[in-house]
């Protein structure tokens, strides 16, 4: 009897905190190997490497909580970086170029929102198609070559350090994390997003303006992805159409791994942060242990199938028990 209750509790914890469990497993595993895993430098480096995807994930989370999904962020990411560099190279001031790039991302989000929210199409395939379209646009813009920036100051944005040790990307990520966390937790917009994702019709009947709110969520997602693209372009000092190839799937997987469900209405920015960080830790562990990138791809796939599969499995159990 006690064993049954205890096992149920363990199952429950795993089902809620699959990502945390995965981090713990990886961290315990790394104790047995002599590597530089447990150094402040490595952790800062992991945070910096994860920063771009984390920033994309914050925006995507807003859309997912509303009951949507945004697979076009990969294309938007590439597009944002390329647009910024193109404008800077023809003489725009950096701040203006960044604003225009972010507005471009917001426009992509606007179209996504029109198709998904206003026209009520299924978000998954249509945003996938949108990502493909944007990748084509990026290739046309750059002729499929990497596009270097001619202004050295642009590189400073993502490659400088605060207090002589903290990479600026980590600082941006923390600021955006705080901003998005505040937006989703403590503003009426954020609470409305949860309500819409939880039950669209109930939210509509309670007087929430569902269409503008959900539409805004997609715009936020697009703008954030473009901003992340600008930061990535600054980090690499180039814009390229291949940067976003895996981003869409990876970020959305990371968001779900963290515990934000595609059914909508649950999850949060914090959960998404953890979900993306699991992937980063996994990649870091692999390279620390000297496994080549094929194994990384293999374990990435296994991680995605396992955690999303567990998520489905527990939801199915819940459905059946009701």
């Amino acid at each position: 009897m006690n064993i049954k209750i205890a096992s149920q509790r363990v199952w429950g914890t795993i089902s809620k905190q699959g990502a945390v469990l995965a981090i713990l497993v990886l961290m315990i595993m790394m104790l047995f190997f002599k590597t530089n895993f447990y150094t402040a430098y490595n952790w800062l480096d992991m945070l910096r490497s994860a920063a771009i995807l984390e920033i994309v994930a914050f925006g995507v989370t807003v859309a997912v909580i509303c009951g949507g999904c945004d697979l076009s962020v990969g294309g938007t990411l590439s597009f944002g970086g390329i647009a910024a560099i193109l404008l800077i190279n023809i003489g725009f001031p950096i701040w203006l170029a960044i604003i225009i790039a972010v507005l471009g991302g917001a426009f992509v989000g606007f179209i996504n929102g029109f198709l998904v929210v206003h026209q009520k199409t299924e978000p998954f395939i249509i945003t996938l198609g949108m990502g493909m379209l944007l990748k084509g646009v990026c290739q046309v813009l750059t002729d499929a070559h990497p596009l270097p920036s001619k202004v050295p100051a642009f590189m400073e944005i993502s490659n400088s350090k605060f207090f002589a040790s903290i990479p600026s990307l980590v600082v941006y990520m923390v600021i955006l994390f705080a901003a998005f966390h505040y937006l989703m937790r403590y503003t009426s917009f954020g609470r409305n997003c949860y309500a819409i994702g939880g039950n669209y019709e109930v939210a509509e009947y309670s007087g929430i303006k569902v269409i503008p709110t959900k539409w805004a969520a997609f715009i936020i997602s697009g703008a954030t992805a473009a901003l992340a693209g600008v930061l990535l372009a600054s980090r690499m000092n180039t814009g390229s159409s291949v940067y976003g190839d895996n981003t869409g799937m990876l970020v959305n997987c990371g968001v779900v791994i963290g515990g934000t469900s595609f059914a909508g209405g649950v999850g949060g920015i914090r959960e998404s942060f953890i979900g993306l960080f699991v992937i980063q830790i996994l990649i870091n562990c692999m390279s620390m242990l000297g496994l080549d990138s094929y194994y990384q791809k293999l374990f990435e796939g296994i991680l995605i199938v396992t955690i999303i599969g567990l998520d489905c499995f527990f939801r199915m159990r819940k459905r059946e028990s009701v």
């Binding site: 999904c69 998954f124 059914a263 796939g301 199938v305 489905c312 199915m316």
Partner: peptide
């Protein structure tokens, strides 16, 4: 086995299988 029924779950699990 995992009871994936909605399109989103299916999309991501098949993507993961594809990576494998």
């Amino acid at each position: 086995t995992v009871g994936a029924m909605i399109q989103a779950e299916v999309l991501f699990i098949t993507f993961g299988m594809s990576s494998i």
